Simulated scan of single mutants.
Amino acid sequence: MTYRYTATPTPIGAAVAVFSAGDRLVALGTAEDPGWVVDAVAREVRGSLAPADADVAGLSAQLEEYFAGERTAFDVEIDWSLSTGFAAEALRLVAEIPYGETSSYGEIAARAGRPRAARAVGTACRFTPITLVVPAHRVIRSDGSVGEYAGREDVKRFLLELEGAIAR
């Protein structure tokens, strides 16, 4: 199968979106080097990636609106094929956290019916194949501290401040 990808500049790096058949979002990652995300996703999907001719599913425009503070939700169909087991279940719950709100790792674990699995939720968030649209940045520690986002607390804090979930 051939997957298509787009790269959109954002304040936190290039957002590389990979789409499967039917313009379903299979991966979204940010990096200073878009090629790194493309290579990593190509290995995961075991397929080839080709640049898209246009803004697939309007996601590039939606990302621009989000970072401009004009969009609070993304309108794109998700292909969950790169998430399995408890991680997939946790990430689906994370996707339900509203803009401007946060939830703790423990709260997500409890909602998934596994109240002792907060660390597993953290692992799912850290390794989610779809960032931003699946708002792992909205999941915080039970003590109220923000924690990290793909290893970068500054990025997580920036996103939560952008959404008004924490004070600037």
Rank of each mutant, 00 (worst) to 15 (best):
L59E: 06
G85Y: 07
S83G: 10
I166S: 06
S81E: 01
E64K: 08
V94E: 09
R46L: 01
A57M: 08
V26E: 09
P11W: 12
S142F: 00
V121P: 05
A120D: 15
A167Y: 04
D39M: 06
L28Q: 05
D55M: 10
R116I: 02
A167F: 01
L49M: 06
I78F: 03
R138I: 12
A109V: 04
G47P: 03
T123R: 08
Y5H: 13
G85D: 12
P129E: 04
L59M: 11
V94I: 14
R46Q: 11
L162V: 12
E70F: 01
L59I: 11
V16G: 09
A57L: 07
G164D: 01
E44N: 06
D39Q: 13
L82Q: 03
L25H: 12
G22A: 13
F19A: 06
R92V: 03
W36E: 15
E44L: 15
E107K: 14
F127V: 01
L25Q: 09
G113Q: 12
Y5T: 05
R111C: 05
F158V: 07
A31C: 13
P129D: 09
E64Q: 13
D55F: 03
T131V: 09
G85R: 11
A112I: 13
D53Q: 08
S20H: 05
S60G: 15
G13V: 07
A68P: 03
V16F: 09
A150S: 05
L28D: 11
T10K: 08
A7K: 00
V38W: 00
S20L: 05
A7Q: 14
W36G: 08
R168T: 13
E70Q: 13
S104N: 14
A17V: 07
S103E: 15
A68L: 12
L159S: 10
A40I: 00
A136S: 15
A42T: 10
A61Q: 12
M1D: 02
A42K: 07
D33R: 14
I12D: 13
G22W: 08
G151P: 06
F19C: 09
V146Y: 04
I12C: 05
A165T: 10
D154A: 13
A14K: 10
R157N: 02
G122M: 02
A40D: 14
L82E: 03
P129R: 00
E107I: 13
Y5F: 15
L93A: 07
A40S: 15
G144C: 04
G164S: 07
A57I: 05
V16D: 06
T102C: 13
E70C: 00
T30N: 14
V37Q: 14
V18I: 15
L160S: 09
G100P: 03
A14L: 05
V139S: 04
